[in-house]
Simulated assay, not measured.
Amino acid sequence: MNDEQLLRYSRQIMLPDVDLDGQDKLLAAHVLIIGLGGLGSPVAMYLAAAGVGHLTLVDFDAVDLTNLQRQIVHTTARIGMNKAASAAQSLRELNPDVRVDTIEQLLDADALLAQVKMVSLVIDCTDNFQTRFAINAACVAAKVPLVSGAAIRLEGQVAVFDARLKTSPCYRCLYEEDSDDLTCAANGVLAPLVGVIGSMQALEAIKLICGFGTGLAGRLLLLDARHSQWRELKLPKDPCCPQCSK
């Protein structure tokens, strides 16, 4: 690290859990963020600010006026711009030291797996089960940790699925393939809720990279924002899971 980096990251370097060694790990890490909407916005901004050295952003969608109520990485001037490109612009302004790559198209299974194999961990910030199952399958195959989040209406959840651990469940252990999608367009969502869940995803990612604390593998956190209540559920590995039991 140079003197400017030591100053930029000084407030987290002084934490015993991070220290210089942890900051070096962050600078060397490569994180794949899929979805640059409500969850991906705080995830990308916090990881860039924290000094994760290489971020690859994946999103085929364009910024829409209705996104701006909660997708804080974008601006009004960028309406119509691809979300990955818009987010990359914000992140480069926030921290020029971070390498930011963008993928502005849908990835098929092979392309997704190829991307997952190149990174330290994956953060799923998408909003539909088909994509989440595809991301999970790639992470299980490549044995790359997956940080998963979801938020709708006034409810959110966050979990970690770590295929490196024999006892860790995968996303398919939690949901059946015929689960119904709930969309913000149809159901609504409160802006700060996605900020809370996205921030928790960024926190879990930093913990995984630096290697401190107790991770969420095998646990599911549920947030009831209406009553400001968190619940924790134990999530065991499904021995009959069609994805991770193979």
Results as ranks from 00 to 15, higher is better:
Q71I: 10
A48H: 00
Y171A: 05
A114H: 06
D238M: 12
T126E: 08
I135M: 10
C170F: 09
I152E: 00
Y175A: 07
Y171P: 12
S179Q: 13
D162R: 09
E155Y: 03
I152R: 00
L112F: 11
T66C: 12
L193S: 02
M118Q: 11
V194P: 00
R153T: 08
Y46L: 08
D64H: 13
P96R: 03
A185K: 15
I209M: 04
T56C: 06
T76L: 14
T102P: 15
L165Q: 15
E176N: 15
G37Q: 10
S199Q: 03
L65A: 14
V147W: 02
L26F: 06
Q69N: 13
D181P: 06
I197C: 03
I79D: 07
A159I: 09
F212S: 08
K207L: 00
D178K: 04
Y46F: 07
F133I: 07
C173T: 14
C173S: 10
I209F: 01
R153F: 02
V122M: 13
T102K: 04
D178G: 05
Q157A: 03
M1C: 09
L65Q: 13
A217I: 07
F60P: 04
G51I: 05
K25Q: 09
L223A: 05
G149Q: 06
S245W: 11
A202S: 02
P42N: 02
P192D: 04
N2V: 13
G53V: 01
G51L: 03
L223D: 06
N82L: 13
H227E: 04
P239A: 11
L165Y: 11
